[in-house]
Design a protein around this nucleic acid. Structure first.
Length: 559
RNA sequence: UGGGGGCUCGUCUAAUGGCAGGACAAAUGACUCUGGAUCAUUCAGUAGUGGUUCAAAUCCAUUGCCCCCAGCCA
């Protein structure tokens, strides 16, 4: 065999996991997907999901989907369903679906245990007082006057907090650690807060106290036997607390490892700002194809495979990083190039009359469905005297290096004939309204008998057979690489992020295209049938354009 | 400013004391019935300064810059 074994992709987390196994720190691998059900999954979550999922499976382990539902004020069942749907679409299989709220009882028992150990206390200070006495980055905090009350009183108070005897914000349970700790996270962090409204989406009104992330997450990891709790860098300073709780309790201790989160240029990842875009109507919903929510990307036409490839190429590290949006586009082009059926579509039609073509003749031309896949076969495309071509493919006065149609020039109509432009008709404003060409009958199918060449091949549609459709041309939502920078992200919105041209036509073979199907419109881009499509009114979303060498040449010569 | 983390081509990422490599982007050319795809080539990097070493992106010291933390959010 000549094929070299490709080394398995590795990174510092995979190495750490392998070492843990080798040294026997853990005898198996189990990770968890920890979404908070308060919004839709976006591409940033996908990176985290895939790291957890892949590392577990590469080691013969499993992953638990655990919803982090510790705050009833923000969480809803609707999001739970959407997250599961998105994760499944990506091809993620979870061994078990759990909720932080499944463990509320046990967590409460552990809190009681900590109180009995003298490691936690009920604080009657207001949120404002707690905040004020926390100290600053450089100064130690001040201990609460309630810090040293008796175990019995703490137990009694916590019980009554749980039973709903006190109003929201009146008391919290805090871990008793060190108000002078240089790491602010360790300055007697809150464990439980009182929340009466609204009802929790799963536990209803059973609970009036809810655990904070720090008190819930690590303990849940431990209860589920998670070996590796993988999360983003901002949790690094929480790791000492994660470990402190489990050490005090003497429970199984998973290893938390942090990696840098995914930042994507020209994309909005902030949940709060995403919500604002949706609520202000700047985009049409959480599944707007301009968003990098998974639902948006799906609707835009990104394939799961392309997204998986992208995440693999992004890698895993601890550096603050900004991934170029072009890398995502490259991945989706690569995947769609392999699988998308080719079609002809004219989005900005120019009427072409073939002067020497018989008035009523219609010919069926053979067109290849996918040059990358011989098994995809071919189809018939009707040809007749009056055609549409794209406006971009004709210039009355050709710029330098322009190979397409212009007066006197001959080009090939893809899979049809060579044509030559002989005259131009203009409307009253002086704009070219139609052009006249002659065709060479001996070039049927697209090859010249005499071996002569043309420099360009353009796509076309028979005017009377063309199907009118709606086409939505999407561009980047923002004009700024990092729209999250500064406070006025709305000013970075690209006014041309969605353009719907007036007269778009596609070839008749697309008449029965179904929502979700991917196509390449030759020489134009990749498109996906939108769910808004109706019988007789198909809607296409542009997933991504094809690379356009001519656009670059033109841009350069214009400078 | 206290604590924590980071710094390798424009971007992302390898190299685990021994030839700084890959991908995306960019550029040039070949090929082409998609100015697509493909192929070839090119451009381009170890934050600075010292030190250890036969040998340093890697080890040590030091400086600089960037990110995170003062929610009863996660």
């Amino acid at each position: 065999m000549e094929t070299k074994p490709t080394p398995a992709p590795t990174d510092f987390i995979r190495e750490a996991v392998a070492e843990d196994l080798r040294l026997g720190r853990y005898t198996y691998v189990r990770t968890r997907l920890p979404p908070e059900p308060n919004g839709y999954l976006h591409i940033g979550h996908v990176k985290a999901f895939l790291i957890d999922y892949n590392i577990a499976h590469e080691n013969g382990g499993e992953v638990i989907l655990r919803f982090d539902d510790t705050n009833p004020a923000k969480e809803e069942t609707e999001y739970v369903d959407a997250i599961k749907d998105d994760a499944a679409w990506l091809g993620i299989h979870w061994a078990k679906e759990t909720y932080a709220s499944d463990y509320f009882d046990r967590l409460y028992e552990w809190a009681v245990k900590l109180i009995k150990m003298g490691k936690a206390y009920v604080d009657d200070q207001s949120a404002e007082e707690v905040s004020k006495t926390r100290g600053t980055l450089t100064e130690a905090g001040i201990e609460s006057p309630f810090r040293n009350r008796s175990m019995e009183e703490n137990l009694d108070l916590l019980e009554r907090m749980k039973n709903g005897e006190f109003p929201d914000g009146s008391r919290i349970l805090r871990a008793k650690i060190d108000m002078g700790h240089p790491n602010m996270v360790m300055r007697d962090p809150a464990m439980y807060r009182i929340i009466h409204e609204p009802a929790h989406h799963r536990t209803g009104r059973n609970w009036c106290i809810y655990p904070m992330y720090d008190w819930s997450h690590g303990q849940n990891d431990s209860m589920e036997g998670i070996t590796h709790s993988l999360c983003s860098m901002e949790y690094e300073i929480h790791r000492p607390l994660y470990e402190w709780f489990l050490e005090q309790l003497g429970e199984f201790k998973p290893r938390q490892i942090e990696f840098s989160r995914l930042n994507l240029t020209f994309a909005m990842m902030s949940k709060r700002k995403l919500r604002k875009l949706v609520e202000m109507g700047m985009v049409k919903g959480w599944d707007d194809p301009r968003l990098t929510t998974l639902r948006g990307m799906r609707r835009r036409g990104y394939t799961a495979q392309a997204i998986l490839d992208f995440i693999k190429k992004v890698g895993v590290a601890k550096n603050t990083s900004w991934i170029d949006f072009a890398l995502l586009e490259s991945c989706v082009r690569d995947d769609l190039n392999r699988l998308a059926m080719r079609k002809m579509a004219v989005l900005n039609p120019l009427k072409v009359v073939i002067d020497n073509y018989p008035e009523d003749l219609v010919e069926e031309m053979d067109a290849v469905n996918n040059p990358e896949d011989a098994a995809a076969g071919s189809r018939k495309v009707p040809f007749s005297k009056v055609l549409f071509i794209d406006q971009d493919d004709f210039r009355e006065v050709p710029p330098p290096k322009y190979f397409r149609l212009y007066p006197g020039n001959e080009v090939r109509l893809r899979y049809a004939y060579f044509i030559k432009c002989v005259s131009v008709v203009k409307d009253e404003t002086g704009k070219v309204s139609e052009i006249h060409c002659t065709y060479d009958p001996t070039t049927r199918g697209g090859d010249a008998q005499d071996g002569r060449k043309v420099k360009s091949t353009i796509h076309w549609l028979s005017a009377k057979h063309a199907i009118p459709v709606e086409v939505r041309l999407y561009e980047r939502l923002f004009t700024h690489e990092n729209p999250d920078e500064g406070d006025d992200f709305l000013s970075f919105i690209n006014p041309e992020s969605l353009v719907i041209p007036e007269n778009c036509f596609v070839e008749p073979s697309l008449a029965n295209a179904k929502a979700g199907e991917h196509f390449q419109f030759e020489r134009t881009g990749y498109f996906c049938v939108d769910q808004d499509s109706q019988p007789g009114k198909i809607v296409f979303n542009r997933t991504v354009t094809l690379k356009d060498a001519w656009a670059r040449i033109e841009q350069k010569t214009n400078q």
